[in-house]
Amino acid sequence: MSAVNAPSYDASSRQPDGIRQVRALPRRRPGEVFAAVALAGPAMALLLVLFILPVVAIVAVAVTDWQFGTRSLNFIGLANFRAIFADDIFLASLRNTAIYVSIVMPGTVLGGLAIALLIESGDSLRGFYRAIHFLPFMATLAAMATVWEALLHPTIGLVNNTFAAVGLPTANWLRDETTVLPVLAVIGIWQNLGFAMVLFLAGLKSIPQDLYDAADIDGADQWLDRLITVTLPMLGPIAMFVVVVVALRAFEAFDTVQILTQGGPGHASELLLHTLYRESFEFLRAGYGAAITVVFLVIAITLTLIQARLIDKRVHYQ
């Protein structure tokens, strides 16, 4: 402490003007800069090395022909990007990811909202239902993927056995081009539903009871009217937030693809992050993988920025 404060007292004692001394003291003290460097320095250095520079590096790699292990490096402009956008696998991956997100996101958000509304509409067993619906979000997805594989097994899986028993069509879910992506999306919804639910429950709790009372007095006392007049509009901002967060999570899906399908059959379940992993670490095509990474990054940042804008809006809302 004394080391921190001593310089500032020295500095102030040199000031001839007493009034300025008082003002000079709390302002930027040299000791504080020293402390700031000591405290923030390690984190900032690591942030630079582990986050900022790697992003710069990945962009740099994306515009060169660099390969793992080679020493030569030439600037090739957007050639990598032209290559990936001419690559059917990458395009399929992009398309699949869009489809996957467009199933998981609405499914998770609407499902989570419905569960949250159901839980909050009564008093009994709230904690129990909340815990159970949240459980899949906690459980190690890599392990649960193997369970889903067993469930979806074409001959001994519970799903096919049940479907056959009640006369529904059966399939080799994970080996059929038409079913594999929707099935992965169902697993994605299963995993993220509880997350959306918990966020919606928090949103529901924050709605002032007075508004429901006012709605009662105003005559909006039926379930649907209360929902339309108070609940949904008040959930609006949080719903936008949940939409983006869930979209981001769906966009980053990897474990199920890696474990269950490896992107197959064909490339029917190739998702962007899996493609990125394969190109970079299995085929070791660094420039190519880097270009995919940059595309991935751009999409993720766009989603996050949309979210930031929406949160700003939420502040103005009240």
């Binding site: 900032m44 790697p54 790699v61 991935f296």
Partner: peptide
């Protein structure tokens, strides 16, 4: 800088961190 770090999905860093 921290906010920028917040924007970056960690998977993006895989290749450079692997090289590092």
């Amino acid at each position: 800088l921290v906010l920028v770090g917040l924007l970056i999905p960690h998977q993006v860093l895989a290749v450079p961190l692997f090289i590092l």
